[in-house]
Amino acid sequence: MPHAYSRAEKAHQDNNEGVRLQKVLAQAGFGSRRKCEQIITDGRVEVDGELTTELGTRVDPHKQQIRVDGSRIRLDTRHITLALNKPKKVLSTMDDPKGRFTLRDIVGDRYERIFHMGRLDYDSEGLILMTNDGELSQHVMHPRYEVKKTYIATLEGRISGNVCRRLVTQGVNLDDGLIRLDHCAIIDSKRDETMVKVVLHSGKNRIVRRIFGAIGFPVRRLVRTQIGPIKLGEIKPGSYRVLSQTEVRTLSKEVGL
C-alpha cells in the first residue's frame, strides 16, 4: 500500500535544497543545534500546520510557516526591531516640518522603511519600539492584544496608597470614558512630590498624564520603562539597540503571532 504523504512531508520532499529544520530553529534563537533537535523530537514543532518530529526535515523558512509551541518563528532578515530611549523634547515621528528633533535624528537612515510602534508625547521619555515589520507593528498597537506598558511617573503632591488602589479597583472617568490602571505602586514619597510605578494596557493619547491630572496630581516627569516583555534596561537617552531574535519571538508570541 503506497504511503500517503502529508502536505508538510510533500513540501519537505520537494525542498531537498532547503535548510535543516534544527538549523532554522537555532538561527531563530532557540539554542544550540542539539537543543533544537530535542525540541523537534519532543513534538513541539509544526511546519505548515502539521506536527514535524523528523530530524532530517528540510524547510524553506521564507515560504513555509514554522511554529514552536504554537508561536510562529520569524526569520526574515530584512526585518529589524529596535528598542529606543526617547529623551524629552523629541517628537515621536520620523519627520517634522518645523525642524524639531525626531526619532530619525536618533536612528538616522540606516534602516529602510522603519517606523515607530506607538508614541510618547513631546515631554515624556523612555521606551519606544520601532520596526519595519508591518505585521508585528499592527499586532503590537492593536487594542485587542492589550499589550501592557509600564511607566515611572513623578507627580506633584503627595498621594497615598489608597489613591493608587482606587485607580486600580475603581478607575477614573475621563472625557473618553472610564479607565483603570492594571497596577499602581508608590516608589518614593516626599513632601511635595510622589514617584509611582504604573502599569496599564490602554494606548490612548497622554493617558497617564490625563489620569493623574484628573485627580489633582499633575505629572512632572514620565518615563516609559517597559512594553510587553521588552524593557528599557540600560539604554541611554537618545540611543537604541536591536532586539534579539529571542526578544522578537517573545514579543510576537504575546501579540498572537
Results as ranks from 00 to 15, higher is better:
Val140Ile: 15
Arg78Leu: 03
Val198Ile: 12
Val68Gly: 03
Gly99Tyr: 04
Ala8Thr: 15
Arg158Glu: 06
Lys98Phe: 13
Ile211Trp: 11
Thr150Gln: 02
Val24Met: 10
Val163Asp: 05
Leu75Tyr: 00
Gly238Val: 10
Arg166Ala: 10
Pro87His: 07
Ile80Arg: 10
Arg44Phe: 04
Ala153His: 00
Leu243Lys: 05
Leu257Tyr: 14
Thr41Phe: 01
Gln65Val: 15
Ile114Gln: 07
Ala11Trp: 11
Glu125Ala: 06
Val59Tyr: 05
Val107Glu: 12
Thr246Pro: 00
Arg224Ala: 05
Asn85Phe: 03
Arg34Leu: 09
Ser239Phe: 05
Ile211Val: 15
Ile128Asn: 01
Lys89Met: 07
Glu112Tyr: 13
Ser202Arg: 13
Tyr122His: 09
Leu82Met: 03
His201Met: 09
Gln27Thr: 12
His116Lys: 02
Leu84Trp: 00
His62Arg: 11
Gly213Leu: 11
Val140Asn: 01
Arg210Cys: 12
His116Ser: 11
Asp96Val: 11
Ile66Ala: 07
Asp105Val: 10
Leu127Asp: 08
Gln170His: 13
Gly256Leu: 10
Gly238Cys: 09
Val59Cys: 04
Glu54Phe: 10
Arg165Gly: 00
Asn205Tyr: 15
Pro143Phe: 06
Ser32Cys: 09
His201Cys: 08
Leu75Ser: 07
Asn205Ile: 08
Arg20Ile: 08
Lys88Met: 05
Lys236Tyr: 01
Val208Ile: 15
Val219Lys: 14
Gly70Trp: 02
Leu174His: 08
Phe101Gly: 03
Arg20Ser: 03
Ile235Glu: 06
Gly238Ser: 08
Pro143Lys: 06
Ala153Gln: 00
Gly29Pro: 07
Gln245Ala: 14
Leu129Asp: 02
Ala28Arg: 08
Lys88Ser: 12
His79Leu: 03
Thr53Asp: 09
Gly177Asp: 04
Arg210Phe: 12
Asp76Val: 00
Lys10Asn: 12
Arg241Trp: 03
Ser244Ala: 02
